[in-house]
Design a protein around this nucleic acid. Structure first.
Lengths: 133, 133
DNA sequence: CTGTATCCACTACGATACTG
DNA sequence: CAGTATCGTAGTGGATACAG
């Protein structure tokens, strides 16, 4: 192994999210961010228009959805298809890379959803045993 | 299929992150949050002490690491083992559920790291074609 | 319909100092 | 070492109005 760090099975990739200045950390934040994760998750089911997304991602504001989509498009994870019609129609869909990211995200999301019973139980235990804190 | 929504392969789970008020969304945010994801990722390599984590998760402040760990412990994803010695020694490690979450997170992180070349290229293209914007 | 622009509240976060 | 407490700031994010 030609690596100089002490962490076990680590590839010698040029990008490391654990490093403060690594650009991959920024992209990871776009992907896992509050609205990024839900947006990618929604688009995993298929192409959607702006307001369809807005309804699907319950609670997102126009501004944040717009910002989120721009960041994801810039990172090459989402493709924006604008039709020059009137009224305008814009469809968003995942790129091939975006689809792979979304697949992994969905796996995480569904696992968390499936274990919420345990999580809620753990919280009760925590709050009870530690009382007021 | 006994489902009444229009989304394809969806299980009839009681929890749905896409719903604004669902507690699973809060947990997902703990997990995918800026420091939550990196903390779980670091712990996936093995048990770590507070300051070891602090060094591994480059850039995290004491305060944020402390908050992050408390949230993850409360959700039952991280176990905190405090030794009543002097000086104190506290080890953090993943719970079984935490380990499964971290595995999925790692898969996402490594994929993103591996595709940063494409991401960076996509950004260049975006910034060039849209010029100043 | 698909956004952008503006304003404002809140809170997440970092720096620092301090405690057990 | 392992945190907690306090404070100040910068940015997140919502509401609203408006533009193409």
């Amino acid at each position: 192994m030609s690596t100089m760090h002490e962490h076990a099975e680590e590839k010698d990739l040029p990008f490391d999210v654990f490093a403060r200045a690594c650009p991959s950390r920024v992209t990871l934040e776009h992907v896992t961010g509050r609205w990024g994760a839900l947006t990618l998750g929604a688009l995993h089911e298929g192409s959607l228009r702006f307001n369809e997304l807005r309804r699907r991602v319950d609670g997102v504001s126009e501004k944040m959805l717009s910002q989120t989509l721009q960041a994801l498009e810039r990172d090459g994870l989402v493709h924006r298809e604008a039709q020059p019609t009137n009224p305008p129609r814009v469809d968003y869909e995942l790129t091939p890379i975006g689809r792979e990211v979304a697949t992994r995200l969905i796996s995480l999301i569904q696992f968390v959803e499936g274990r919420m019973g345990d999580v809620l139980a753990a919280r009760e235990r925590y709050d009870t045993t530690r009382g007021a804190r």
